[in-house]
């Protein structure tokens, strides 16, 4: 109890006197830090299922938030499978069947590869600042880092999550943890971001753990390796024709 009081008191104090940076400013800084013209990264996704864990690696090219192209590299079964996202459309290509299947509408809500993420989660491409208005509700120390605690409330009707709580590293402007809430206040998902590295001058969290809080299970771990920003990505990559190559 005492500890919480110690933590919260200065936060309230600062907040009351307007000494903390404006929450929307913080959010903007976070977005500036996290987004880039384009980026290319390789990733490992570790999924904890009831049969143990499995790891999927992939290389992703993305431009802005609207276009992304992912090619799965391993395991062997998934290698060569490609996923193309343009705006709110999604296609998956499998080399084994030489088929391009469109995933649309309701199917987007299915889990990706058995993870705690749905296709839709991966497709949510709007900027946080477009969707949410933020408010600083305190400061906390998380894993030894000072963080601002932001509360994000949806300002549009069609946000997937009505409210989010975000812990932002006060120095590097990188989110370290995020809780996603239902309209009714129920905690639905938790994201823990860690392994924050400086890449090409910006701080970037390389490991993200997603956890669906309503169901039992180990959650999904997403680790980025080899992140590059502002590369030359040929435009044809973001066409359906590129899927077949």
């Amino acid at each position: 109890m005492k500890n919480i009081a110690i933590l919260i008191f200065p936060a309230l104090f600062l907040f009351a006197f307007g000494l903390a940076p404006d929450a929307n400013e913080i959010l903007k800084k976070v977005e500036e830090n996290m987004s880039s013209k384009n980026r290319v990264f390789e990733s490992e996704m570790v999924i904890h299922g009831r049969r143990g864990k499995r790891t999927i690696t992939a290389r992703t090219y993305s431009v802005g938030d609207k276009q992304s192209f992912t090619e799965y590299l391993s395991p062997a079964r998934e290698a060569g499978t490609k996923m193309l996202k343009l705006e709110n459309q999604l296609w998956i290509y499998s080399p084994a069947t030489d088929r391009t299947i469109q995933i649309s509408g309701h199917l987007l809500r299915q889990s990706v590869m058995g993870s705690d993420l749905s296709y839709e989660d991966m497709m949510d491409d709007r900027k946080l600042t477009e969707v949410y208005s933020a408010k600083t509700i305190g400061e906390e120390v998380l894993d030894g880092r000072k963080t601002y605690v932001l509360e994000l409330t949806a300002k549009v009707d069609d946000a997937a999550y009505n409210r989010r709580k975000m812990w932002v590293d006060a120095e590097r402007y990188v989110p370290l943890r995020e809780d996603l809430f239902a309209k009714g206040g129920q905690l639905l998902k938790r994201t823990i971001l860690s392994n924050v590295q400086q890449i090409e001058g910006r701080w970037f969290p390389l490991t993200i753990v997603f956890k669906d809080m309503l169901k039992d299970g180990g959650g999904t771990e997403f680790r980025m390796t080899k992140v590059q920003f502002n590369q030359d990505i040929p435009a044809y990559l973001f066409t359906k024709a590129a899927l077949k190559q």
Binding site: I47, G49, R51, R54, I56, P75, R77, E78, T81, I92, S94, A96, T97, D98, R99, I101, S111, M113, G114, S115
Partner: peptide, 16 residues
């Protein structure tokens, strides 16, 4: 026809 489903391990299953 192509079957698109989920493998035993949660991966994407494709088969013609």
């Amino acid at each position: 026809v192509t079957l698109f489903g989920s493998t035993m391990y949660g991966g994407m299953a494709f088969a013609n």
